[in-house]
Design a binder for these strands. Structure first.
Length: 152
DNA sequence: GCCAACGTTGGC
DNA sequence: GCCAACGTTGGC
């Protein structure tokens, strides 16, 4: 099993929104970065655990835990001209963009802010903390996962 | 295939 | 709202 971190803007879709969905499950549409897409499509498996990260907000940080419940399939928003994520180069034969389904597991006891992650010596090499990193999906080391859970 | 221009992300 | 970092696009 693999651990991941996925970013979302809480003003648009936060951990509470995921929890409120039917079956607490939502498809993770709108990924439009090839590196993120490839990880999602090629490596994410049912049962993988995900840190739900709140980005572009007042206090960015890790808000909760989710679980992958369906592996990559075509992101239909790429075929919808009315969607913000519409991509004219996507087709039914060549979807180009993919999404997975994730299910709410739980919120952390408190949001663990980015500032605390940065301050933790053991997390120095985490991809999330690398300068200029803008990937919306990234793998998390098992050791880092445990370190972060211990910060709750 | 290079690279300048442009758009986006996301912390602050 | 600013701006650094990065990805993508498209002319040549």
């Amino acid at each position: 099993m693999q651990y991941w971190l996925m970013k979302s803007e809480p003003d648009t879709f936060g951990i509470d929104d995921l929890a409120a969905r039917p079956s607490a499950t939502e498809h993770w549409d709108g990924v439009r970065n090839y590196q993120a897409r490839n990880m999602m499509r090629d490596q994410m498996r049912v049962g993988d655990r995900v840190f739900f990260y709140h980005s572009a907000c007042k206090t960015p940080g890790i808000a909760g835990i989710a679980e992958v419940v369906r592996e990559a399939y075509a992101d239909h928003t790429a075929r919808d001209p009315d969607s913000n994520y519409y991509d004219p180069k996507a087709s039914d034969e060549e979807p180009r963009w993919y999404m997975v389904d994730v299910k709410f597991v739980r919120k952390l006891k408190r949001l663990i802010p980015l500032s605390e992650l940065k301050a933790h010596p053991a997390l120095r090499d985490m991809a999330l903390l690398k300068k200029g990193n803008r990937l919306s999906i990234m793998p998390i080391d098992a050791a880092d996962w445990q370190t972060i859970l211990a910060m709750e």
